[in-house]
């Protein structure tokens, strides 16, 4: 509990610094985003949808990590934020045991603090997933995490925190009976997988490199991973019209659309903030894949 208080104070201090410079104009809907390009693209899609529906919008993107921006949302400095169901649920309730998409969404709705609401959940997901190279999958006949149990030893690469996550080495052992040796590969996880330093890597499912490098994502039949669908988090400042406009975007966006947008962003080096016009097609995500 004391930790939470410390964290809260630190986060408020940081967010006050970060947001102090951004004067809030009258009635504009303030849209925030994480400092993660894919999240920024989605935030921009929300912004354009709202502008098209006649709302005034203020973009306050790239607010950093959850520890920084969640207090800002709670303070009412941000009205709308693209989030991910599983990860946000874990933030508000670290002990949550739900992993299936709709169960996670329901748990999140009740875990959200007063004044915040989750709008309609999008079919698009961006969640942790275990990936292997095509060669490794073919050589060992892998398609699901279950298949790993036949292998003698597996090295798993990922961010340092994966060592302690419920879906990390402990979860693999208890849910699938797969014992892995963990290597904290940090920001070089995908590179380490390709170089053969690790056999399997934790990569976000919407990461364009899965597609570009032809990685094989192992299926997770037992629901080890927390589902993390895109979900807009809104404050009470959003009226019904605005909510409807955002819901239309969420429902239209599929997991493939999200990946396609990320691939485009990476390959064409488009930035959601600096190249707004060229990204206009992201407004109607279903047109993207063409």
């Amino acid at each position: 509990m004391k930790n939470k208080l410390k964290l809260g104070l630190a986060a408020i201090a940081v967010s006050t610094l970060g947001l102090a410079g951004c004067a809030q104009t009258s009635d504009a809907i303030v849209i925030g985003s994480q400092a993660y390009y894919s999240n920024e693209i989605v935030a921009e899609a929300y912004a354009q949808a709202l502008e098209e529906a006649g709302y005034e919008v203020e973009r306050n993107f790239s607010l950093g990590q959850r520890d920084v921006y969640v207090p800002a949302i709670l303070e009412g400095e941000v009205d709308l934020f693209p989030e991910y169901t599983g990860n946000l649920l874990q933030y508000f309730n670290p002990d949550a045991s739900e992993t299936e998409a709709s169960a996670v969404y329901d748990a999140l709705t009740s875990a959200l603090p007063e004044g915040l609401s989750a709008l309609a959940m999008s079919p698009a997901t961006d969640q942790d997933s275990y990936n292997v190279t095509q060669e490794f999958a073919a050589a060992n006949n892998l398609s699901s995490i279950t298949d790993l149990a036949n292998l003698g030893s597996v090295t798993l690469g990922g961010a340092p925190e994966l060592a302690e996550r419920p879906y990390g080495p402990t979860g693999l052992l208890s849910v699938y009976g797969v014992s892995v040796e963990f290597l904290a590969t940090g920001d070089t996880t995908v590179e380490s997988l390709v170089a053969g330093d690790v056999d399997m890597a934790n990569v976000y499912s919407a990461d364009p490199r899965i597609n570009q490098l032809g990685l094989v994502t192992l299926s997770d039949p037992a629901g080890l991973f927390l589902s993390s669908n895109l979900v807009p988090i809104a404050s009470s400042a959003l009226d019904q019209g605005a909510r409807d406009a955002i819901n239309a975007v969420s429902l239209a966006m599929s997991a493939d659309d999200l990946v396609a947008m990320n691939v485009r962003s990476v390959e064409e080096e488009l930035s959601a903030v600096s190249n707004r016009r060229r990204l206009a097609s992201f407004r109607r995500p279903n047109q993207l894949t063409n």
């Binding site: 930790n3 520890d67 925190e161 302690e164 904290a184 940090g186």
Partner: peptide
């Protein structure tokens, strides 16, 4: 780096 991500201060 691990502690910050896990919020283990």
């Amino acid at each position: 780096i691990q502690g910050l991500a896990l919020r283990n201060f």
